[in-house]
Design a protein around this nucleic acid. Sequence first.
RNA 1: GUGGCUAUAGCUCAGUCGGUAGAGCAUCGGCUUGUGGUGCCGAGGGUCGCGGGUUCAAGUCCCGUUAGCCACCCCA
Length: 434
Amino acid sequence: MVQKVNATRGMRDFLPAEKARRERALNIIREVYRSHGFTEIEAPAVEDFGRLHSGLGGDNEKLSFSILKRGLTGQDLSDAAAAESTDSLTDLGLRFDLTVPLARYYATNRAQLPGVFRAIHIGPVWRAERPQRGRYRQFVQSDIDIIGEGSALAEAELITATSQALDALGLQDCAIRVNDRRILTELLNHCGFSEEEHAAALITVDKLDKIGAEGVVAELAEQNPEAADEIGRVLARFEQAGATVAGGAPLNAEAIAAVLPEGVASEAAAHLDELAQAVTPGLPAGVTLCFDPTLVRGMGYYTGTIFEIAHPGSGSSVGGGGRYDGMIGRFLGEDVPAVGFSIGFERIMELVELPSSSDAEVVALISDKDLPAFQLLALKRELLDAGKTVRIVWRQKNMKALLSNLAAEGVTHTAAVRAETAGAADLEIRPLAG
RNA sequence: GUGGCUAUAGCUCAGUCGGUAGAGCAUCGGCUUGUGGUGCCGAGGGUCGCGGGUUCAAGUCCCGUUAGCCACCCCA
């Protein structure tokens, strides 16, 4: 090797065996989503820069890859330098999630879509993060969304379909934590935080499991001591109700009322209760549902219900979503309710164990060296016509290594080809033991 | 974006106190073996991630850089 070559930072190559494993998992997920009445769409990886930076993507906007305009001149560069902004140099960007493109897609194609649209949207997204395990710069998200349904039916269908997909992948011990943005907003108002203080306060509350209630209160006291004291009392109430420990509080009206202060978010609580009643009876054994009043989620576009999938085998969340009723109105000029649920495909793949399926018969023709191509292709055609999958390899000295490599690559049978082999009838097709 | 750890042959790794690199597997060749899983002998393959510096001498010490991993941050 002349020089070390790598795939681009944070992006990966997949060898055939891993690619096959990913495709199998993806097909399982698609199958479940389809059976729940969702239909698959595709949208471009590139979106308009302005749409990606409309303030809806939260922190992810800062992580997006931008694309330079074609044919920039030195004058363009000095203009940008004078304006101290690179915005004029860029007009497109790679999508950092599938939700913003879906909202744009819906606004574009609404006339040809059903009134309540159930979409499957699977594809790569890009974020310029610092990579590590379970965190890449290119990764696949697997989303389902329901557009045009404002009732808890939408959340219930999404959570049910996603739970079934996790179950079909063989995952156990998944916990779906649920909360509502309106609950968070009312809690902060109740404590006495001003609108401007909300964003920073939410980030702090989100750290509860890491820095504890004292840590949260101490951090918030820096900007608003009185409200921080009040939130300390609220958090104490959460703890008393068991809502802050793993597993959280049950998701029903009584438990929610027990956790929240008097008069806070009764509308949102009723919405959560309704969706829990619809979902719980059909929940697979490997998935539990709970109410977590401290669940925040960073995306700026959520307006109502929010949820997140946790799994003990993963340090970070393996999925998430929520209601974003305001976003489509940005593109369409008319508000349309919408909810989405995303599975973090890369993180799921680190948890699932899939059997190496493929019951198809894969035959390797092991040919003596230097047999003519016409002889080998004639044999291959005969076997293909008989419905087999065929691969041609040359005989090599170390048969042990050859055979075990073939087995690892999914070959199930072998047949020796010699100069005197006239047709498939002369082949002795033998099963290959791993 | 911040901090820490790591980088040696195609792969997995060893390399002590600084003295210009080794093993196993893989590859290739010869012989052996019942031409389908054997055994023996031999060969090729490395500017030690990259770029600087210290030194008579650097894989080894120092600085920078790139990539991976880990903890933050954030999230899928």
